[in-house]
Amino acid sequence: MAITVEKPGIDGLEEAVAELREWQSDGVAWQLHPGDLGWFWRKGPEETAASVRIWRRDGRILAVGFLDGADLLRFTTAPDVRRDEELARRVAEDVASPERGVLPEGNVFVEAPPDALLQEVLPGHGWHVDDEEPWTPLSLDLTEPVKAPDLRIETVGADLAAAWAEVIGTAFNGSTFTAEKWRTMAAGPAFADARCLLGYDDRGAAVAAVAVWSAGPGKPGLLEPMGVHRDQRGHGYGRAITVAAAAALRELGSSSAVVNTPSSNVAAVTTYKSGGFQPWPETRDLTRDA
């Protein structure tokens, strides 16, 4: 049968999250993670469902795409079809045709695993490497125990949602995150394997926050997001909450902790490196000009 692309609807999101869990591997520099959908779930299940695309063949999910904004498709595949020519050419056709409802017209972007055949096929359809915004993937092997950070850490439940939301809200310019959005996020299927952590200084003030997303035992876990209160920067709290996040993922059975950040965000890259994370080679999206 031919490959088809579909919007999964709310009921199909759990299936997409489950497949993304299964596909995670320490051998890939970066790929779409169930935690990416879990963090986006703060916007609600309807908006999350509207942002997901699934490619199937004979009923089997081959690939999942996530519209992280109107102009960026974050895409990954099952490991055994990463080099599938039929899939790569079908996806290339879908992202090139706005009427298929994957990407709109104009200047758009696709993020795909570095080893995906799509990386080679798209340039033949009018796409090129985006030279303006490289990304730095980083990872930390969790085979050995992680040293406890010098910061009091609390696991966040509904009682601490407002405090966690406040730290995240101040950490990112333009953030609209609220306690209500935390509760929405926590109701999503990806949150079953997640933890939110809050770090406190010696005075008892909440100074740093992070969410970690496990993909199951023996698979990489994701940090998304991590932030330090804007009034508390420069004290090492970013490093401390990053180490706490890695420790939490190890408790959840993750094989490694992974994160991806724009290379231009030098402070973030430095923070992760100070927490023991090792950088992979930079990755770049593919783009199609308007």
Rank of each mutant, 00 (worst) to 15 (best):
G236E: 10
G236M: 09
G236R: 10
G236I: 09
Y237P: 00
Y237S: 03
G238S: 11
G238N: 04
G238Q: 02
R239Q: 14
R239V: 14
A240N: 07
A240W: 03
A240Q: 09
A240V: 02
T242L: 06
T242G: 11
T242A: 15
V243I: 15
V243F: 04
V243A: 14
A244I: 10
A244E: 06
A244C: 07
A244M: 07
A245K: 02
A245Y: 00
A246H: 10
A246Y: 06
A247F: 06
A248K: 11
L249C: 06
L249F: 09
R250P: 12
R250F: 07
R250W: 08
E251I: 06
E251Q: 14
E251F: 03
L252S: 15
L252T: 10
G253L: 11
G253H: 13
S254A: 15
S255G: 15
S255C: 10
S256Y: 09
S256A: 15
S256P: 12
S256G: 14
A257S: 15
V258I: 15
V259I: 15
V259P: 02
T261H: 03
T261V: 12
S263M: 04
S264T: 12
S264Y: 05
S264I: 08
V266L: 06
V266D: 08
V266G: 00
A267Y: 06
A267E: 13
A268H: 02
V269G: 08
V269E: 02
T270W: 01
T270E: 08
T270K: 11
T271G: 11
T271I: 09
Y272P: 03
Y272A: 01
Y272R: 04
Y272N: 02
Y272F: 11
K273G: 15
K273P: 06
